[in-house]
Each structure stands twice: as C-alpha cells, then as structure tokens.
C-alpha cells in the first residue's frame, strides 16, 4: 500500500509544473523583443521543435524508430498550402485540416507498424515517406512538383494579426501553437495512457500480460504524433508561404531525428532544446561553409552516439533539479 502511494507521489512529482518551465516559456517570448531581427529564425526553431516533439511521442514514449516522419510533416504542409492556394487562407482552419489529413494517414499506416522488428518498422516508415515523395513529385499539376507550390495567400491569424515581412507574427503564432500542443502532449504522457505506453515501450510482452493492449496504444500515439507533425508542416507552409518537395525529403526525417537526439529522447523539452541547438548550429555552419554544413551535422551525430546522447538530457535535468531544489529551500 505504502509502495503504491510512493509511486503515486513520484508520478505526481514528475507531472508537477516547475517554475523553471515557466521561465523557459517566458524567455521564449522575450527573445523576440531582444533580437527582433531574428524572428524568422526563431519561428523555424519553434516549428522544428514542434516536429521533434511529435517524433518524441512515438520514439521516446512509444519506442517506434521511424525514418519517415517527414511524411506527415509534408502532408500537413501540402494540405495547408493547397487550402491557402485555393482561397481558404484562414491559418487556424489550415492547421485543423492539416492535422486531420495527417492523422488519417498516420492512422492508416500505423497498422503496418504493429508487426515486425525495428528494421521492418524502419523500412515501412521510410517506404511510406518515399512513396509520398514520389507521389508529390509526379502529381505536379496539383503540387507544383519540383518547382514547389506557389501562389499561397495566407490570411491573418484569427482575422487580426496578418503575417509581416520580419516574421514577428509568424514567430508568436508558431510559438503559441507549440505551447498549446506541448501542454497537450505533457498532459497525455503523464496520464495513465502515457504510463501504459511507457510500459509497452519497456516490455511489450509483459505489458500485454498485465492487460495493456499494446496495439491500440501504439495506433493512438502514432495517429496523434502524425497529427502534430502535420500541424508543424502546416505552420511551416503558412509562415514561409512556400511548400516544396523538400518537406517530404529523406533529409527532413533524418534531421528531425538528430534534433530529438541532441535534446534527448523521451523528454518533451528534448525536442525543443534540440531544435534550438540544431537550428542555431545549422545557421552558424551554413554561414561559414554554405555547401558542406552537412559534414559537421554528420560529425555531430557520430560523436553524439559515441559519447552517449543521454548526456545533454541528464545535464539539463540535473541543472534544473539543482536550481529548483535551491529555489524550494529559499
């Protein structure tokens, strides 16, 4: 009895909102006023963070290694882009439709991931992303093919805030969406559903033995993750007013995995912190060696694996724990 109580306390403790988290989100708004010229870069970070967050739900909490997560990002981007092109330019409506379309595809394809090993899952996710890439490439009359989708007209957010050239609206809009979806994800992973999902990830056979249906959990989280990735894609389409084949590229799937791994898997802030580090690094490297920055990204990946990629996550967590520990005592 006492053990269940202490486990319960531990769960509550994990789910508790820490003041360092409030600080993080307040800072994320403040940076815009400190560096207003960097707003476009910041909105990229927010979108990348959201995309990585969606991957974390399936990789960190569901244990599915996916090499084709760009599929949902791309589907969302094209859905929002096509709507904006054909006169339905309301951003929130675009997000909703993108989420629905991506969720549908995620739901349909999730059943393919229930069988087989890591390798099979890897191949199926990769194969689906490549199929969608080919599809978008071939249906040039709808998607614009290799030239990209042009002529998008995105309306003002909530009918009030129109997108400006400097990306101020784009950033606040992306950040707001990220924040809302972050809270949602946070709620979900700390719920009983999230805990059962962790059990499935830990040991699928034992989870089944204590009465957790692994299949339904994986389908649910995969669909949710697809929807969030679709929203990230839609945000990207709306804020840049451009959708190109690049959104479905293999590179994007690999990048988002790198982002998540830099920040830490299985920790919702991991995706966001990874996105900050990755985008700043990419921006900086592209400034020095425009063509060859990929080399350094590859080097970072290799080193991360050799050193152990949990270091950053545990480092951050021990810092915040120490700081909040002191804060509590004082």
């Amino acid at each position: 009895m006492s053990m269940t109580a202490s486990t319960h306390d531990m769960m509550l403790e994990q789910a508790r909102w820490r003041w360092s988290e409030s600080l993080f989100w307040i800072l994320s708004v403040l940076v815009l006023f400190v560096f207003p010229s960097k707003a476009l870069l910041f909105s990229q970070i927010a979108i990348m963070g959201l995309f990585a967050l969606s991957l974390d739900l399936i990789l960190g909490y569901g244990g599915i290694v996916s090499l084709g997560h760009a599929a949902f990002f791309g589907v969302g981007a094209y859905a929002a882009g096509l709507m904006a092109k054909h006169g339905l330019g309301d951003p929130l409506l675009g997000l909703a439709v993108a989420a629905c379309v991506a969720a549908c595809i995620g739901w349909l394809t999730s059943f393919l991931l229930l069988r087989g090993s890591d390798l099979t899952r890897l191949m199926v996710t990769l194969g689906i992303a490549l199929m969608l890439f080919e599809l978008a490439n071939r249906m040039a009359s709808i998607t614009g093919g290799a030239d990209g989708l042009q002529g998008m007209m995105v309306g003002p957010v909530l009918g009030l805030f129109s997108f400006d050239l400097f990306g101020k609206t784009a950033y606040l809009y992306s950040l707001a969406v990220l924040f809302v979806l972050f809270l949602l994800s946070r709620k979900i992973v700390h719920s009983t559903f999230g805990l059962s999902l962790r059990a499935v990830k830990g040991n699928i056979l034992r989870a089944g033995a204590i009465g957790i249906s692994a299949s339904s959990r994986l389908v649910a989280i995969y669909t949710l993750s697809a929807a969030i990735a679709g929203i990230a894609g839609a945000l990207s389409a709306q804020t840049t007013q451009l959708v190109s084949l690049d959104v479905l590229d293999f590179h994007r799937s690999a990048d988002v995995m790198l982002v998540l791994v830099i920040g830490g898997v299985g920790w919702l802030y991991g995706g966001i912190i990874g996105a900050i580090m990755f985008t700043l690094m990419q921006d900086w490297l592209a400034g020095i060696t425009p063509q060859y920055w990929e080399f350094w990204i590859g080097l970072v990946l290799v080193c991360l694996v050799l050193v152990g990629h949990d270091r950053i996550k545990t480092g951050f967590q021990s810092i915040t724990a120490r700081v909040s520990g002191k804060g509590g005592a004082a």
Binding site: V65, M257, L301, L304, H309
Partner: peptide, 14 residues
C-alpha cells in the same frame, strides 16, 4: 537500433 541508425546516417552525411 536507434544508436546504430543515427551513427550510420552520420557517417553517410559526412
């Protein structure tokens, strides 16, 4: 498997 995927993708990029 995640580590292997990341590592070998890194090698490819490099």
């Amino acid at each position: 498997h995640l580590d292997q995927v990341l590592f070998t993708i890194g090698i490819v990029f490099m």
